[in-house]
Simulated assay, not measured.
Amino acid sequence: MDETAVANAAKEFADAGRRALALLCGPTDEDQAAAAVDRTVETFGRLGTACTALGHHCDH
């Protein structure tokens, strides 16, 4: 997982005036998934939508 790319993507959202949270989570690790949901709810108050981008790479 590319932590730098994830952090950069969140920064692009923030620079555009949006709120973003950069989280890395393995697709088969239930504890990481639960922690990601908990952190999201802690940060934003709720989880409205969740999506994954397994194996996806975007050069921007």
Rank of each mutant, 00 (worst) to 15 (best):
M1S: 13
M1Q: 13
D2R: 07
D2H: 04
E3N: 10
E3Q: 13
E3D: 08
E3P: 03
T4M: 11
T4W: 06
A5H: 07
A5D: 08
A5Y: 02
V6A: 13
V6C: 10
A7M: 08
A7N: 06
N8Y: 03
A9G: 11
A9I: 09
A9E: 07
A9F: 05
A9M: 14
A9P: 03
K11L: 05
K11T: 05
K11R: 13
E12T: 09
E12K: 09
E12C: 04
F13Q: 03
F13I: 03
A14N: 10
A14T: 13
D15R: 06
G17L: 00
G17Y: 03
R18F: 00
R18C: 02
R19H: 05
A20H: 00
A20T: 01
A20I: 01
L21E: 00
A22T: 00
L23S: 02
L23W: 02
L23E: 01
L23R: 00
L24C: 14
L24E: 07
C25A: 08
G26V: 08
P27G: 09
T28G: 13
T28Q: 10
D31E: 15
Q32K: 12
Q32Y: 10
Q32T: 07
Q32C: 13
A33W: 03
A33I: 12
A34S: 15
A34E: 15
A34G: 13
A35R: 09
A35M: 09
A36M: 10
V37G: 08
V37C: 11
T40C: 12
T40W: 04
E42S: 06
E42K: 05
T43V: 08
T43A: 10
T43R: 05
F44Y: 02
F44R: 03
G45M: 04
G45C: 05
G45F: 07
R46E: 11
R46S: 12
R46A: 13
L47P: 03
G48I: 11
A50Q: 12
A50N: 06
T52H: 14
A53V: 08
L54A: 14
G55K: 09
H56R: 15
H57M: 10
H57L: 11
C58P: 03
C58N: 07
D59Y: 04
D59Q: 06
H60Y: 08
H60F: 05
